[in-house]
């Protein structure tokens, strides 16, 4: 009896010849929305299918075929994040980033420096209208963040990934994780203010 139960619960793979028709657009959208790069996204979709073929015997049917393929792609996306966070020359160390942050707060008591005081931008009210222009600036400002910060920020805010997973994949400690989340936001907000007001 147990066997029949397994059969009904377990998912089966369809013919890989059909994968492209069934999943290529979905996977492509997944990758583009996370990487903002259509060329890299195309390559990752292809790599995902080829990697899936290699481990087809490891597919256990615990998830649907689509979920399984997406999981493979997800790790490929994280690999890109990882590469991006390193491509700024040396891997950024927190101590170097600390210098940057001193710009915003006085080192002794930690209050805002006058020139960095957050000013009203017209986005404060919960029902404020956000123009397309503002969103464009937001995207540009995000791209200016250091690679590792953007990777942490994207994984947390866009993918709503577990903190422990992000720490493991990007090799940051949990305390550094929160430091990065904080600095990314302080920098992002400041960039918005500079370019908007």
């Amino acid at each position: 009896m147990e066997n029949t139960e397994n059969l009904t619960i377990g998912n089966k793979l369809t013919d890989p010849h059909l994968w492209v028709a069934k999943y290529a657009d979905y996977l492509y959208t997944y990758a583009v929305s996370r990487l903002n790069d259509e060329e890299i996204a195309k390559d990752l979709v292809q790599e995902t299918f080829l990697a899936a073929l290699e481990r087809i015997d490891k597919f256990e049917g615990n998830s649907s075929e689509k979920t399984w393929l997406t999981a493979i792609l997800k790790y490929k996306v994280i690999d890109v994040y990882r590469k991006r966070s390193k491509s700024l020359g040396k891997q950024i160390k927190i101590s170097e980033e600390e210098d940057k942050e001193e710009d915003f707060f006085y080192p002794d008591q930690g209050n805002w420096k006058l020139e960095h005081w957050p000013l009203q931008m017209g986005i404060e009210e919960p029902d404020a209208f956000i123009s397309g222009e503002f969103t464009d600036i937001l995207q540009k400002c995000m791209k200016k963040l250091p690679g590792l910060w953007l990777a942490v920020f994207t994984m947390k805010h866009m993918d709503e990934e577990e903190t422990s997973v992000i720490c493991k994949e990007l090799k940051v400690t949990s305390s550094n994780f929160w430091v990065i989340i904080h600095r990314a936001k302080v920098n992002l907000r400041s960039c918005l203010q500079k370019n908007w007001i």
Binding site: Y28, V32, I123, H157, R189
Partner: peptide, 29 residues
């Protein structure tokens, strides 16, 4: 810091929205 907090919440919402709209775009290869 109250202003910072309001803006931070707004930015998180915008980022979330940005992501959702890019997922909804339904791109075609």
């Amino acid at each position: 810091c109250r202003t910072f907090m309001q803006q931070s919440i707004a930015i998180n919402k915008m980022v979330h929205h940005l992501f959702q709209s890019s997922v909804r775009r339904d791109l075609k290869l």
